[in-house]
Design a protein around this nucleic acid. Structure first.
Length: 423
RNA sequence: GGAGAGGUGUCUGAGUGGUCGAAAGAGCACGCCUGGAAAGUGUGUAUACUUCAAAAGGGUAUCGAGGGUUCGAAUCCCUCCCUCUCCGCCA
């Protein structure tokens, strides 16, 4: 959520930046400023009446104590319509604030100046490409066939016990999952992130805090009985650990990592392009989260991007880094890098990580602040990234590393899998 | 799930209708003292909104959350959330 004061002070710039994100309702900006004017004047009126009422109440108290009951009664009789006025103003204020909030949450974050214009994924900017695309034998198989051939993943069994998009991992498939998770966590810890293990369900406040609500309400599984949401990413519980927190200046940067399953309804996504592991309702992911000083957050974003790239390099996967264009970016992000691996058997790029700087968009809602050099509270910047999401990594590993003999496990993973081949 | 107790500032903790944004202590910050430190001592130490060109200052709100009673609520009433104790259940 953008700060109203920022919108007021930088109206032109806000409009210009929103255009980069192809925002369709620029008129909201002026509506917001208008509502904020109304909010302010209502608050001032209410405060004035409250001040009078408080002064009278205080006076009555003093007169009562002094035993001047008659005078007290006289003051009391003058209190008149204050109470009603205050109530009226309070209602008006609440209504205006609500209206303001409802409009404010419709504004996406402003994109960073380096974000390219554009509407579609095709207009994303390829920042770099790394690693050679492997030449596969003519009879190479896509990962869903490899998974069946080596008994690694059973999609039908998942359908039976839950539904489509909930695969069952078996044998070396299950072990590969566990190996990747441990490897990713270990690497994150080496990079200075401390591990947290967090709840997989969150309340409404948390959903709002990181911006999934109200924007992506329909994308999350919801447990009616207890009003809890299944997390779509560990970003939600981990970032919300710091909701309503004022950090000390030297606590920054805060670095956390964690592994969780992620649950996404992915409503309406069916068909060939979501086959196998390409798109699931439940998948595992290791997430890295940082809370950074505003002056350092873009430096931090580069470091996080480098960390993710390091993992892909160590796994020997060809990848590319995209700088997302305005139209393809998430609602709350100011700058996002997507990392994609080359799936050789499918002949397509698969997104395996998304690293974003949210600047103060989340922290404004979270009320996540730190005490700056002047001792004043200031909103911190939040960043997060997948490091990494498992299914498409598994898909690419299986496809790219298939040989006559079987599937070769990357060297860095062998200490974790304790086997070198899937055969 | 049942019965009871309770939720106050960074922490401990006082406060049962007016003098309470809140005693006292601890912690922390700065100063004095000291060769330096400890002890001692002095001062300060919430957040948000708003007013003001800005600073200073002023106003308003906040004692788990929301509502109510009252001229006036941390204090009384209602609803909800959470914590603790006992019982029940249980990986």
């Amino acid at each position: 959520m953008l700060q109203v004061s920022y919108i007021r002070d930088n109206r032109e710039q806000v409009l210009e930046r929103l255009a980069v994100k192809n925002f369709k309702q620029p008129e909201l900006v002026d509506e917001i400023i208008g509502l904020d004017d109304k909010r302010r004047s209502t608050q001032t009126s209410m405060d004035t009446v409250s001040a009078e009422a408080n002064a009278a109440a205080k006076q009555i108290g003093e007169l009562m104590r002094a035993g001047k009951k008659a005078e007290a009664e006289e003051v009391k009789s003058k209190t008149g319509t204050w109470k009603e006025d205050i109530k009226k103003f309070a209602e008006q204020l609440a209504a205006t604030e609500e209206e303001l909030y409802q409009k404010l949450v419709l504004l996406p974050n402003l994109p960073h100046s380096s974000v390219p214009k554009g509407l579609t994924p095709e207009e994303n900017e390829v920042v770099l490409e790394n690693g050679a695309k492997p030449e596969l034998p003519a009879n190479a198989l896509p990962h869903w066939e490899l998974a069946a051939k080596y008994s690694l993943i059973d999609f039908e069994l998942g359908v039976k016990i839950t539904g489509a998009g909930f695969p069952v991992y078996k044998n070396k498939g299950a072990k590969l999952q566990r190996a990747l998770i441990n490897y990713f966590i270990d690497e994150a810890e080496k990079a200075g992130y401390s591990e947290v293990s967090v709840p997989l369900m969150v309340n409404k406040d948390s959903g709002f805090g990181t911006g999934q609500l109200p924007d992506k309400e329909g994308q999350m599984y919801f447990v009616n009985e207890d009003e809890l949401y299944l997390i779509p990413t560990a970003e939600v519980p981990i970032t919300n650990l710091y909701r309503d927190v004022i950090l000390k200046g030297d606590d920054l940067p805060v670095k956390n990592c964690g592994h969780t399953p992620c649950f996404r309804r992915e409503a309406g996504s069916y068909g060939a392009h979501v086959r196998g592991l390409n798109r699931l309702h439940q998948f595992d992911k290791v997430e890295i989260v940082q809370i950074a000083h505003p002056d350092k957050s873009y430096e931090t974003l580069e470091l996080m991007s480098a960390h993710v790239q390091g993992l892909l390099q160590n796994l020997g996967l060809p990848y590319r880094v995209l700088r997302l264009c305005g139209g393809d970016m998430g609602f709350g992000s100011a700058l996002t890098y997507d990392m994609e691996t080359w799936s050789a058997a499918q002949q397509r790029w698969l997104e395996v990580s998304s690293v974003s700087n949210f600047e103060t968009f989340q922290s404004n809602r979270l009320k996540l602040r730190f005490r700056n050099a002047e001792g004043k509270t200031q909103l911190a910047h939040t960043l997060n990234g997948s490091a990494l999401a498992l299914p498409r990594i598994v898909a690419t590993l299986l496809e790219n590393n298939q040989t006559e003999r079987g599937i070769k496990i990357p060297e860095v993973l062998v200490p974790y899998t304790k086997f070198e081949w899937i055969d």
